[in-house]
Each structure stands twice: as structure tokens, then as C-alpha cells.
Design a protein around this nucleic acid. Structure first.
Lengths: 152, 152
DNA sequence: GATGATTATTAGCCTTGTCTAACTTGTCGC
DNA sequence: GCGACAAGTTAGACAAGGCTAATAATCATC
């Protein structure tokens, strides 16, 4: 789903209001930003389940560095979007979709982290930067990162 | 939830509610996110001024891929935060602070872009990814990127 | 210099993501 | 089996960042 752009580019796609190459990039970034939080939550939930057998809101709040009500509201959105299931006053579980997303995110995170480390970055900074960068690397870039990290 | 660790780690830092290393990373990312939009605008405004001698809202809207009212509201915030000056129905100018921020962002953008290109990424994808990544690279990482790009 | 098109602003709505304060539930200890 | 305390939820505020619709100013251009 990329490149090979077709001759005209106008009138064919009724998609939004691109018009400008830079505009498309910014729209892509905004799109990515909208999913960042969900990805972070899902990734963390998967990790907690893996480590403790369950994911509880209080743990999520601590690890994310936000308050409990913020977690509650966000979990409501994740449930609405079909990424998690939950019963009142109980811990949180991932749906199949949530699990798939978590897997994908963990993989991306791991590659970005490994790449940064292989560049010579200290582990702490690498972790922090990976957290921010992972949501903004395309498949293509990710592949290059992985190749570089492996070849080092 | 045991995880014992930490002998003390409590009571020493009155700064916010970190408590967890991961929490600090996430808070850092959230912090970065808050500045992203301002950085994108300031960078674009500087570019427009450089190219056309002035930055007009309609141009900003086109390049950013948003509507004119969104631009107006955002410019209001930038003005409030001391990054730009503007008179009603006139074009936009950067303050000294805004100019400094723009310079910094352009430099970061350029380094990230050059780095991605030197990795072998195609220019189009590199541009898109740089747009997303540039706000999340620490000084340390940036230095490594620059060194790598130069040494390639 | 009137007028129509372009550009800019204002008003008002919506969602996200954050918070504090107050309330409810669950769990343990005894 | 009751009570305290921790965990979870609800309510309500607020700012950011989007949008559409409607209004106002500027500018071409005749």
C-alpha cells in the first residue's frame, strides 16, 4: 500500500484534504498520536499480566505515572474500542485484538530499543527514547533498525 | 504485587509522583507531546517566512493539513505562550523565543532526516518518520545520530 | 470607489486526557 | 461477621486540539 503513486492523484481519492505532501505527513503524525496512549496501555497491561498474572488499575496508574481516575476513564475508552474487557472492581484483560496490538507494540519497542543500544546509547536514555520513538517508526524504518541492530 | 526491591527510594524526591522508573519515562513522553504541536507550527512558520517573506494562516493551514479556525486557535495559544506575535488579519511573526525554538527544531529535524537517509531509507518515508521522531530524541541520541550520519 | 472573492476570526460543539474530591466496593484481620 | 484500609468508580472541572457554520476584514479589479 505504498509508492507506485498513480499519475493524477487528484479527484481519485476522496480521502480528507491532503493537497500538500507535508500536510499528509502531519496528518499521519496526528493519526499516530491518537493511538499512542492506547498502545502504551495495552503494552503495559500485557506486561503486567505476564508478570503478575493480572493487570490491576492501581498498578497501571503507578507505572504510567497518572492518577487512578485517569486510568479508569482511559480503560473505559479501551473497552469501548474493543481492546480490553473488564468487570467492575476487577482486573483488566486483553481481547484478542488487544493482545495482537500488544504483541506488535512489544516487538516494535524491542527493536527500537535494541537499535538504540547498538548505536551505543546508555540503557536508561535508550529506554526513555524508545518509549517516545516507537510509535512513529514506519515498517520500513523498523526493518532497517532491526537489520542494523542484528548486524552490529 | 511484591517485587520487594527499593530499600528506601521514598521520601527523598518530592518531585511529582514518579516512584517508578517507567512512570518517569511516560511522563517525559507526555511532556514532549505537549510541545510537539507548538514545535511543528514554529518550525513551519520559520520556513514560510524564509521562503515567502511572511507566514499567513492560510498557508499554515494547508501545510499542516488542518482547517483555518484550528490554525487561528493554535496561533492564539502560541501568542499567549510568547512564541509569536500577530496583529488581526495580518501575517504571523516569530518572537526571539520562537525563533530560537524554530532553529533548534530545524536542526533536530535535519539531523534525524539525514540519519534516516544515511541508514538507507527512501526520502519520502524518511521525511514522514522524521516528522514524528524528531520530538522524541534526547540530546544524547541526537548526537549519536549526527555522528553516524556524518561517518557514513 | 463599489463589489465579489479570498482570507481571517468568532462562536460553538466534540473528544481526549488530565486532575481533585467524594463515594462505593472488596479484602483482611481479628 | 464487622470494620478499616486499600482499591476502584463517579462526578465534575479544565485545557488542548479538532471541526463546521457564520461573520468580518482585506484585496483585487474593474
Amino acid at each position: 500500500m505504498m509508492a507506485d503513486d498513480h499519475t493524477e492523484a487528484e479527484a481519485l481519492e476522496p480521502e480528507a484534504r491532503p493537497a500538500d505532501p507535508r500536510a499528509e505527513a502531519f496528518q499521519g503524525v496526528r493519526e499516530a498520536r491518537r493511538n499512542e496512549l492506547a498502545e502504551d496501555y495495552v503494552e503495559l497491561i500485557a506486561e503486567l499480566i505476564h508478570e503478575h498474572g493480572e493487570a490491576r488499575p492501581v498498578e497501571i496508574a503507578t507505572k504510567m505515572g497518572v492518577t487512578a481516575p485517569t486510568v479508569a476513564k482511559t480503560l473505559g475508552r479501551l473497552a469501548r474500542d474493543g481492546l480490553i474487557t473488564r468487570a467492575k472492581y476487577r482486573s483488566v484483560f486483553l481481547t484478542e485484538e488487544g493482545r495482537a496490538l500488544a504483541r506488535e507494540c512489544q516487538q516494535r519497542h524491542e527493536i527500537v530499543l535494541r537499535f538504540l543500544l547498538s548505536l551505543g546509547l546508555d540503557p536508561e536514555t535508550a529506554e526513555r527514547d524508545a518509549e517516545g520513538i516507537e510509535h512513529h517508526v514506519s515498517e520500513r524504518t523498523l526493518a532497517l533498525f532491526a537489520a542494523f541492530a542484528d548486524r552490529s
